[in-house]
Computed example of a mutant assay.
Amino acid sequence: MNKKQGLLLVNLGTPSAATPMAIRNYLTEFLLDRHVVDLPAFIWYPILKYLILPKRVPYIINHYQKIWIENESPLLRYSKRLINQLQLALPDMQCELAMTYGEPNLLSALNNLKSCEKVTLLPLFPQYSTTTTQAVLAKVKQLIADNNIKINFSYIRDYADHPSYIDALYSQVLQAFSIQGQPDVLLLSYHGIPERYIDKRQDDYVQRCQLTTKLLTNKCQENGIDLTIKMAYQSKFGKGKWVEPNTSDILEKLAKTGSKYVQVICPGFSADCIETLYEIDEQNREIFLNAGGEQFYYIPALNDTSLQVELIKDILEKTPFLKKF
């Protein structure tokens, strides 16, 4: 029997394999999206094809290979487990997973949802940005138009300040503290974006990150947790100016000014991926320890935990004004 309600979860994407060709194909699709890099195509495409990809792919292939789990990327592995658990938790909804770039692809997911009377699109980016959420919305709209798909769509812009999201982050922090001890500093590391996008696109991403940080800080203080909480931005790409402060710079400075123990959580990543498992837990761990720090712990993403399942259920139930396409 066809289900009347549908849920489409969308994350960024991942290479299909930790091989040069798969990584090259993924990066090409990702970096040619004008929402991600807004340079004119006639300028950007030759730079990407002949300068960036030939250097970038050999550089990062071993990074992917280090984090791969049983021939599968962590992001895809956790996302598939999450959608399966959501289907069990929401038996009256048809739950589909797609990636903005790569597989499982958006068109297949949209076709699977054709029989639903109403579909809610939830991009798994807690803080809205034109580089992520808007890229999903634009691609979905284009696919619907190009393929004459008739679906009554609503979408959730973001959930940066949703109480259940803050509670889930707080639970992750509490669990880390109980197992690993309380650090000198808790650092919230968000993915960075080019600074020019803030004014050029009226992108409120930084404000949404700041709001999440403020609410999580308040939650800790209200519950008697007294520690320094900082925020920073990671994953800078290219030579242009990106939002600051930079995660690596903050970690190095913390170590050099006496902080011995740091824990890092990445609130903007709903599932662990190369940016968290390698960039944070490998590269930035090394930066902190080499600068004089003594202990570093990365707090995992919500991934396929019950916290994430309950969070998504709460978002669906307690977001009264969904945005229409």
Rank of each mutant, 00 (worst) to 15 (best):
Q221V: 13
C266V: 00
P20Y: 09
L97G: 07
Q87P: 00
A255Y: 14
P163Q: 00
R157Q: 14
F153T: 07
I280S: 04
E244A: 15
I61C: 06
K141T: 14
N25F: 13
E70C: 13
F321I: 09
I61N: 02
P300K: 04
L27Q: 07
E222R: 01
D184T: 03
W242E: 02
V136T: 08
P123K: 15
D199C: 13
I250C: 11
M231Q: 14
V173F: 04
V173C: 03
L75Q: 05
I149P: 13
Y64M: 10
I60E: 01
E275A: 07
T212Y: 03
K318A: 11
P163K: 01
Y45L: 12
L82K: 10
P267W: 01
I47E: 13
G181M: 12
D167G: 02
A232H: 01
N147C: 07
N71Q: 07
D161T: 10
F321W: 09
C220V: 10
C220H: 03
F269I: 05
S129F: 09
L174N: 03
I265T: 02
I23H: 00
N223Y: 14
K230S: 08
P183R: 15
L311M: 05
Y155K: 14
N105R: 07
L51D: 11
Y233E: 06
K141F: 09
Y26N: 11
L7Q: 04
G192Y: 02
Y64C: 11
N112E: 15
S108Q: 11
D226H: 12
G268C: 04
G13T: 05
L9P: 14
Q308V: 12
L188W: 04
A22S: 08
K4G: 03
I312W: 12
Q180S: 13
W44Q: 12
D146F: 07
V36Y: 10
P91S: 05
Q134T: 10
F42L: 12
C273R: 03
S178T: 04
A176S: 10
L106N: 08
A232P: 02
N11C: 14
N284I: 02
I299L: 09
L289C: 12
I67Q: 09
A89P: 13
Q142A: 03
L143K: 01
K4I: 03
K230R: 09
V173G: 00
Q202I: 07
Q175D: 06
Y50A: 13
E222I: 07
K323G: 11
L51A: 13
K260P: 15
N290H: 15
L169P: 05
V243P: 02
Q180E: 14
F288K: 05
S73M: 12
L48R: 11
C273V: 07
L82R: 11
E286Y: 06
I280C: 00
L8N: 01
I193D: 01
L277V: 07
I274S: 06
K55S: 10
T228A: 11
T133N: 12
D199M: 15
N148T: 12
S154Y: 10
C209M: 09
I69R: 06
T228L: 14
R157W: 11
Y59G: 10
L124Q: 01
L8M: 09
P194F: 15
M93Y: 08
